[in-house]
Every structure is written in C-alpha cells, then in structure tokens.
Design a protein around this nucleic acid. Sequence first.
DNA 1: CGTGAAAATGACGACTA
DNA 2: TAGTCGTCATTTTCACG
Lengths: 185, 185
Amino acid sequence: MRSQPPKVTVHVIKKGSHRTKFGGCATMVRMDDIDSAIVRELQRDARQTNRELARRLNIAPSTCLERVRALRARGVITGYRATVDLRTLNRPVQALLAIRIRPLGREVIERFKKFLTSLPEVLSVYVVAGGDDFLVHVAVPDVDRLHALLMDQIFKRREVVDCRSSFIYQHVANDVIEPLPPNGA
Amino acid sequence: MRSQPPKVTVHVIKKGSHRTKFGGCATMVRMDDIDSAIVRELQRDARQTNRELARRLNIAPSTCLERVRALRARGVITGYRATVDLRTLNRPVQALLAIRIRPLGREVIERFKKFLTSLPEVLSVYVVAGGDDFLVHVAVPDVDRLHALLMDQIFKRREVVDCRSSFIYQHVANDVIEPLPPNGA
DNA sequence: CGTGAAAATGACGACTA
DNA sequence: TAGTCGTCATTTTCACG
C-alpha cells in the first residue's frame, strides 16, 4: 500500500521560527515552510509512511512525526480520507441543483441543509448568497434516478420554491490546497 | 496517529460472490458488502491500520489487505488525501463564480479549465450545461483578494463574457460516498 | 486464513540555539 | 525553552504456505 519512492525532493528554506509573537488568535501558530510542505505532501498522499515523508522534507522521522501530530492537533489537518471513483460506485451522472427556498430563515435553512446532506445522492451542499439559496452537487446512477430524486425528494419539500438542475460535464478538484499569504507578499 | 478503537462494528451480511458473471465491462468487478464497508471505512479514516480495519469488518487482516489492494488496483479507491481546514490556511472567504465564456468549443473550454485549475485560489471547477459554462469554487484570505482575483485574473481573459460571484455562507461535503444500486433495489 | 521476517511507528532522553 | 535528532521496544505490514 505504501507508495514507492518517486524521489520528489521538497526544498525547504528556513526551519525555525515556529510560533508567532503577535498572531490574531491566542492559539494562532504560524505555518513555516516545513509545515506547508507537510500539509502539501499529505494532501497528495495521506498514506505515505512517516519515514518517507521525513526523507522528502530532509528532516528526521521523529521531527516529522511531531510536526504532523501538531498539525493534526492544531486543526490544520482535519482528517485523512480515501477518495473514490464515482463511476465504479455506479454514480456516473452528476448534476448541480440550484435551489431557492422560502421562507428564508436560520431554522428553515438549517433543516433543509440537514435534509440534503442526509440524501445518499448528495456529494456536497453550498449555502450561498445571491439569486439562489442552495447549490447541491449530486451523483446518481442514471438520469432516471436524477429525475426520481427531484420528483420524490426535492420537490416534495414545501420550502422549495424553485430548482434548476444543470448537468455536470466535468468536475476537477484541486487536490492540493496551499495556504495563501495574508497580502500580496 | 493511528486512531484508537472507537468500537464501531460494521455488520456484513454476505461474504462471497466477488466477481460478476456478466458485468457491463470485462474488468468490471462487483462490489460486495465487504468491499462497500472497506470503502466506507477508508473514506472516514484513511489512516486506520489494516489490523483495525479488519477487526471492524470481522475478517482476517491478510484478507482485508488483499481487498484494499484490489480496490486500489481496480480504481475504486483513487487515492488517500489529508483534508485541511481552510481557515487555518488563511482562506476563510469562499465564493462560487458562475462564468460564461465565448466562443464555446472544446479547445476554449479545455484551455480555460486548465487556466482555472492552475490558480491557487481555486478549489474546484465544474464544467456545466445550462445558463453558465463554468462554476468555480474559490477560497481566499479576504474580500479584497477575491476582488483582485476577479479583476486581475478572471476578467483579463478574453473568452470571459460574464461572471457572477456568490458568497458561500456554508459548505458541507458528504465525506462518505456510498455506491448506489442500479435500480430501486 | 494464519504465520513470521522485515519494516514502520512512536515514546523517550540527549542535544542545540 | 522550544525545536530537533537518534534509539529502540512495540506494533504493523505483507509475502508465502
């Protein structure tokens, strides 16, 4: 399972200066270059061994382990997930549903959001400002199933006043999310 | 790092009948209940040890390892990713950009998609049918940065004819994606 | 599915700036 | 004092029977 060494060297410039003196929050800790590199690498492959990760970053395995644990404890790394292929899970048809609900209010929104996330067809729920209130990413086995989802589940809800569905031709997710600097630095 | 035993027993009914006799594709292999359970568990925690995974599923570690490898080789499991907290990466502001481009055509779409995914602010790109051509999920440090992204990057592109941006109040992703049965079964 | 050699983990104490 | 490193007992992996 553990990946083989593809020799991707990660260049790390400075090593020290870990904790900020005057960060916004009390528990705010600065991400130095090593932390960023660890987060980047673990987003690429969360199952590489600690030894391999350490070797890529040119630090000792024990140091690396400590860093990873700290990142997890700090809440920077929130979990480790296997990613799956939707086609092999019999869900090749994807769509985006733009839904408007009424009346707008915290409780109604929260309840409808809970409802959406409980549906197995739903991959992702965005609560948005602007013309629509919800954008829902769904994946289903076929078009019939999408129709059934709309008719038997979504439209049955009293709060739904409008729903436009768009087919998704392609969906590419940026698998490595980097920290962004505060300013144009 | 390895999680401690939270004693979540997974009930598996039938064990055998792994390969389909008449699947659609030649290399098509059916997902039995053990495979589904493995995929579900590894989506929840990709770093649990093989032993622990096997214990949850009430199968031998060697069997479990073989199953996981097969799922990876079959392309059901496409990778293992660490998930991160956008706030700790200094990207608390999220938005959805609905973009229309012209002229529509395979090359223009492909080129613009490549451009979008190369931007560090971009989390996810949907190529969709309907009124808009692209839906882009972005996360930035602040509103200024969003404005800068639109002005300095998106609107600079000649193919962009329209872009509406909506703020995202909340985004919840279904972290465990289950296989769906072919019919109403 | 069980076994066992080889490998990785992770706790601990020493070291350094 | 906070971060890093080397060591090693314990745990895990994974090829083979």
